[in-house]
Structures are given as C-alpha cells and as structure tokens.
Design a protein around this nucleic acid. Structure first.
Lengths: 134, 134
DNA sequence: ATAGAATCTGTAGCTGCTACAGGATCAAGG
DNA sequence: CCTTGATCCTGTAGCAGCTACAGATTCTAT
C-alpha cells in the first residue's frame, strides 16, 4: 500500500532532509537516475528515488564519500554479497579511525599549548612560540 | 649569525616542507607578503618568509584554517595579548573536539554495523538495511 | 485570468591546494 | 660566450560536495 507517490523536488527535499539543489546535484553526478518530468519539465519523483536519496544521505552521515556511495549503490543494483559490502565498510572504518587519531593528536597538542598560557593581557604568549616551530 | 639567507622558491619549499605551488598560493591569498624578485622575476625569500611559512604549516598541521591563521598572523603582527591568542586556540579546540565526537559516532555505528554481518558470500547484507535507513 | 510560489537551467563560488601548459630565466659545463 | 638542462614564471583548470545566485518558466489557487 502507499504506492508510488509522485513527489515534486521540493517535497522530496523535505522528506529526505536534503536540499533541492543537492538533489539536482546528485542527479547531475549520476548518483540519482533522472526522474520523469511533467509536461512543463518539472521533476516527478517516486518512492524509489526517495529511498535512494535516503540511502545516500545516510551514507554521507556516516562519512562515506560520494564515490564510496556510488560503489555501494552499484553493489546493491548489481547483486552483492555480504562480504563485498562488509569490505567497503571496514575500509571506510579504517579511514575514519585514522582521522580520529589525527584529530586527537591535534587536540592533545592544542590542549597542552593552551594550558601553557596564562591567558592574561600580557603582550606575549607561548602559543606563538609553538606555532613558530623551532 | 646566519643572517638573511636568500632562498629561491624551490629552496624555501624544501626547507619548509611545503610545495612550491602552495608557497605561491599563500602569497596569492595574502598569507605571505610578496618577496623581492631577481631581475628576471624569480622570487627571493629571506628568513622572515621562512619563519612565516613554517608558522603557517604548523598551524595547518594543527587543523587551523587559513583564515584562522590569517587572524593569528594579524595578532602577531599587530601586537597581541596572551588572552587573545589563547581564545583563538580554545575556539579551535572546540571545533576539533566536535569533529572527534562526530567521527566517533560514525565509528561506533559502522563498527556495530560491520559486526552484524557475517561477511560471507551470502547475497544479502544487513548493512544495506542500515544504510537504507527507515 | 492572474498572482505568487515553486521549479527550471546554467554558472560561479567556497576551501586548500594540485596540476598542467607554454614560456622565460638561471647556473654550470664546455 | 654559448648551450643545455634545471628551475622558475603566469595563468588557468580541476578536485569534493555542495551552495547560491540570475533570469526565465511553470504550476497552483483564487
């Protein structure tokens, strides 16, 4: 039930939480198949598009690149095995963990640096020394 | 001692670990004052430039945007108080910590998702469900 | 019929570089 | 002095992933 609803781009944007321009952008870069149009040329989306955009958005929220998502969608389309999908996720997990590591290193350095500083109105700050390198 | 050495852009790139094009880019966007030139038009850098580029690089390594760095350099130029600098660092620290939080959330979700998966040759994967959202 | 909202296409902008192309200049060797 | 090869010059375009226009058209409701 609740068969193929026809959505305008505005409705689909609202339902998916993705901006109108972004929906068009996804179409342009081939992530979203071009939907049928009204006589006047307005896009008319169906449930399939809705699902696909939600898939893309979820992927983005999880930090996948559009290219990653393209591949995942390719798997979904073309028949996939659990192993293939899992591999993509584990690869991505490694990327994320590296980023976390990098950020934590920055955080430590910055926190230490900020602590070395009195923060008053003194016209000198040890932070600048840290940035000045050596 | 070791007074103002004259560096070509290639030397300065090597010493700072920043690409030649990037050095020119920093000049273009106003982070680096235009150095004097040879008769033929080649850039000639002095120790001040060297220090400045190292400052920029260190800032980048710590995740500051070029705009942040521009502000920091402005402080350094124009006379600064420790409090001003500390504020910039603490602001940035908040940004970094937020990113870490976001990435950790992604990581948890992905790790959980990947674990829910057998990873075999089964032509179905629960990960896809997660991405499909609901 | 008409007003106002929504949509259309196409282009430019954002960050922080990187990678050319096509030419000029520099430093070293003969 | 002259040539060669390395380096440098300017300017432009490209990357990701959107976002923000402009100027025109279409849709919807009265």
């Amino acid at each position: 039930m609740a068969a193929t609803g026809d959505f305008t781009i505005g409705e689909i944007a609202q339902r998916t939480g993705v901006h109108i321009e972004t929906v068009r952008y996804y179409e342009k870069v081939g992530l979203l198949p071009p939907p049928p149009r009204t006589e006047g040329g307005h896009r008319l989306y169906a449930d399939d598009h809705l699902k696909r955009i939600i898939f893309i958005r979820r992927g983005r929220e999880l930090g996948f690149t559009l290219d990653d998502i393209r591949n995942l969608l390719g798997l979904v389309e073309g028949g996939y095995t659990c192993g293939e999908v899992q591999k993509a996720v584990l690869d991505h997990l490694r990327v994320i963990r590296r980023k976390i590591t990098d950020l934590r290193r920055m955080e430590r350095t910055l926190a230490k640096t900020a602590a070395s500083c009195e923060g008053g109105t003194v016209p000198y700050c040890p932070i600048i020394d840290v940035l000045g390198g050596k």
